[in-house]
Each structure stands twice: as C-alpha cells, then as structure tokens.
Design a protein around this nucleic acid. Structure first.
Lengths: 92, 92
DNA sequence: TTGACATGCAAGTGGCTGCTTGCCTAAGCT
DNA sequence: AGCTTAGGCAAGCAGCCACTTGCATGTCAA
C-alpha cells in the first residue's frame, strides 16, 4: 500500500486531513476556504480537488455525493498499520 | 516534520527500514545485498547511500562510523506521532 | 608503501507530480 | 427557460526526485 505513504508525503494533503479530522462531511469549497483560513494555503479549487482524488485513492478519505454537493469524510484506518510495520523485533 | 513522510514515500526506503528492523548495525554493502536478496531490488550502491542520507535526515535511522565501516541502526520513534496526528475527535 | 576495499561527493538526466488554464456537466433557484 | 453554483475533465508546464556516472577520500592488510 505505497499509495498511503505517497498521499501523506504532501503538506497540503496532510492539512486536508487535519481539517477533516476536525469536522467531517465537508465539501470541496469548504475545504478550500478552511485551508486558506487555518493553514495559510492559497490552493486553487482544482488543486484541492486533485489532492482529494489522491487521498481517496489511498483510502484515507471517502466521498459521498448528495445533490450538487460532494461531502468528504476522514478514514484513519489505513494509518494504523504504518506504526506497526516496523515494530522493534521481539527476540524469540 | 514533513521529512518523515517524504522519507517514507519511497518504496526502496521502506525496504531499507524493513531490513534494519530485522537486524541493526548493517553497513551500506550489507543493506545493498539484502535489498537484492529479500526484495528483488537492484539498486546501486550510490542510490542506496542517498536513500540512507534521506532516512537519517528524517531521523528514522542513525549511523555510526567505526573504522572504514559505517553502521546503520533503525529508530522508530518518529513513527509514533504519525498515527496519533489524525486522532478521531473526542466530542466534549 | 602499495593495493584493495568501504564509502563520499558532485554534476547531469529522465520521469514523476503538483499546479495551472480553459472548458464542460449537472443541480438548484427565480 | 435562464442564471448561478458546485464540481469534473484534460492538456500543458515547471520543479522536484531518484538514479546514474565518474572521480575522490579514507582505512585496512600485506
């Protein structure tokens, strides 16, 4: 699952996860404005949209379309295995 | 600490961490041969050396020079904060 | 000291990636 | 219907990054 690591490699994408961790079910424009407000990031709508694609591809967020809005929710389950991959070896 | 995430974004670097998780105090050539044996990676010595620099910059490994050998050891402590950064929010 | 071995340094290159630009689709409101 | 709003698609561009190539440094053994 190298997609998860590559998705986390970008600062803007980590900021998006930060925002979704504070409030779920946010639309694209909500995320855009919150990135500008809370993180000082002036990313374009298309740029954020592409970031959301990468994050969803990695399984870190899920999206659901309701009417003309698309709501995004955080999924932290792929992060669990990261810390556990390089466990210090227990000698037998 | 974006360096940690960027360091983990590369497959070869993750394989290096895998090898160091199994045995500490490995030299550059040991790591090279183990990458070829266990992971099927035909990386050059210089390529692996640069990967080791990135990993050390990120604080994921430490190195110690003894004579003409340089031994590398794994340090998993930067990984702890990763899983804890996007904790599900506890409602007050 | 001489040679072999382990590693370091630095410039150059190809491919990936984040971002922009421009246009398009679709849903809701009046 | 007509307009606005939320989002999607795709091509192009610039910077970064992993890798190579060639040479240099330093250490041990004979």
């Amino acid at each position: 699952m190298g997609d998860v690591f590559k998705a986390l490699a970008d600062e803007t994408r980590r900021a998006i996860l930060d925002e979704l961790a504070e409030r779920d079910d946010q639309t694209l424009f909500e995320i855009c404005s919150r990135l500008a407000m809370n993180h000082g990031l002036g990313s374009t709508r298309q740029a954020v949209s592409q970031h959301l694609d990468v994050l969803e591809e990695a399984g870190l967020i899920h999206s659901e379309r309701r009417g003309r809005y698309k709501f995004h929710t955080l999924d932290t389950s792929p992060l669990a295995q990261i810390a556990e991959r390089w466990h210090p070896k227990d000698s037998p």
